[in-house]
Design a protein around this nucleic acid. Sequence first.
DNA 1: AACCCTATTTCAAACGTTTGAAATAATGGC
DNA 2: GCCATTATTTCAAACGTTTGAAATAGGGTT
Lengths: 339, 339
Amino acid sequence: MMNNTPITLKFLAEKLKMSVSTVSKALNNYPTINAYTKQRVQEMARELNFTPNKSAINLKEKKSRIIGVVLPNLLDHFFTRSIDGIEQVATQNGYNVIISQSHDELAKEIQSANMLLRSRVDGLIVAISKQTQDFAHLNQFEHMGIPVVYYTRNPSFNLSCHKVLGNTFQGCYEATKFLIERGHTKIAYLGGPKMTNFTHDRFNGYIHALKDNDVPFSAKFVAYTDFDKENTIAAIKNLFADPDHTPTALVAFKEPILFDAIKYLKSSNHPNFDKIESIGFGNNAFINYLDSPPIASIEENPESVGENAIKLLLRLITKEIDMKNHQKVMVDCKLVVHG
Amino acid sequence: MMNNTPITLKFLAEKLKMSVSTVSKALNNYPTINAYTKQRVQEMARELNFTPNKSAINLKEKKSRIIGVVLPNLLDHFFTRSIDGIEQVATQNGYNVIISQSHDELAKEIQSANMLLRSRVDGLIVAISKQTQDFAHLNQFEHMGIPVVYYTRNPSFNLSCHKVLGNTFQGCYEATKFLIERGHTKIAYLGGPKMTNFTHDRFNGYIHALKDNDVPFSAKFVAYTDFDKENTIAAIKNLFADPDHTPTALVAFKEPILFDAIKYLKSSNHPNFDKIESIGFGNNAFINYLDSPPIASIEENPESVGENAIKLLLRLITKEIDMKNHQKVMVDCKLVVHG
DNA sequence: AACCCTATTTCAAACGTTTGAAATAATGGC
DNA sequence: GCCATTATTTCAAACGTTTGAAATAGGGTT
């Protein structure tokens, strides 16, 4: 049952007693090839299950039809959902996707990048690791003429590059506004790691929503944390430190972190726990199972972010957009009210 | 800044005024090449940032150093975690991984398979879709001499193939035994879709644990569901239908389904809800946030399953194991007690 | 039947590597 | 200084495609 001679153009040509080029052109539907010849070739190809060798084609065409994706990890649903968007558009356009996780380590990111460079990817989509400060390993792609699109996590806003971002300003603005409209005036903001541009836009959205609705801002209602649970608890303790002036609502930069916060507040028997309404970024499916769920979620539309990233990348690959002409695409968030 | 002439062996050879083969051999550290020559070549290669063209190498070597992975989706943490294992071992051995989601649709799975075949992957790791009954699209790999390892979800147990599976029998046995040891005698079993081999081993584990510990089996305590919430609720209603004879514990085939079950039981104000102890397969990170969490989880060690799958595949690729000599690897589960 | 189109097929080079065989250079023995 | 080794480098073919240019075949026209 196992076929030992690999089915190549040459093999088909010999079987059909014609030249390799005729076979190639017949399969690629060249107009100069006789209709009957085409038919014969195509039939034989189907019969023998001919599959063109991509390496040979890539070598000839000087491209790989592979898109590289480097991202921190696949456990974060934001990233896995974004891959759905990337994969779909890529496949539609005949591209394969190689995904590589950096696990938020620079060393691993460099290794991934080099591996993808060797594979001669036609383009790269990156969400950088937390440790990434230097971009040599990513810049080398552009030096070789391979376009790079940064998505979500990207070099500080000053550095010019192609980027596709969730509109976290708008997302946070709408969440804050929603809480204000529900009557809250004491809305706390729980931000993420300061070093990344994780939190800057979100915070501005919060601030602007307060301002636009004449709700006074209080520095006491702002705290920062990261992905560590203990730090989140510390931040929450801080926000609720003054018993005469505790928040009645909370906006958080990421949902699992918000869950930690809620859990702590509940366990600490905060007197008005039931009244506190909260919103975080993410719209995690597990919200359904929480007893004290956030009142709403800021849906970041990761599929759409991924889709926009690959669409931009494809336009850079086809040179429809010049690589030097740096693009910035914003994808709006959507407030999803639960229950 | 952008380099236009691609850096190839030829280019290096011209710059160094030597032949292409010398350059190639110098870079590959051939013993016949003079040490000084090697040094000069390697320095120049580094300086010009030479990156060998993988397509050319693949063409020459008749292999791609790419492993294809086809799985239902990336939203299930079992699969994303298994990828961690696959990726790690693959990278260590110089292989790239192309992941393709079938979204549990046969048509998409066929498309993915064909795409990977064109890419001349050196091997394939598959978790089949729910719809897959016919295996022509996967068998063609083996016909071309490309080994295929099925993992987790695999053709019915009769069909011979290479497979790596979680030991769900043992997992379910231990969970049931654990509940018995905690004094339960009325333990319900909530199984998954019957058509897949999803549930067969699990159920046997449950049965054997009861038998080995002289706990009587009752058909009333067995119900089946799938990933649909309504069906789960219906199943739970059934299990708890007889008010004189309600289960005090529950073993479920998958965790998110168990969460649906718990949620329903809680909302239905079952009199002894607080006493009910439950265990499901998965060990989902979100358990931390549940108010009425399962007492334990059956950790399926997906990373290890992935690792075993790729390790087996690599041995098939190197022909250390003959493709015809079908292997079956079982990965034990681990009971993780919470709190 | 010589000629010219047009339709169709084939030639041949190229893509960037690898590698066994052949060629050349360097070394040492005498 | 010549020959035989050995060390080192180069040649040339191959991997499986694509594609412009060249060749050939098949008809018509006259």
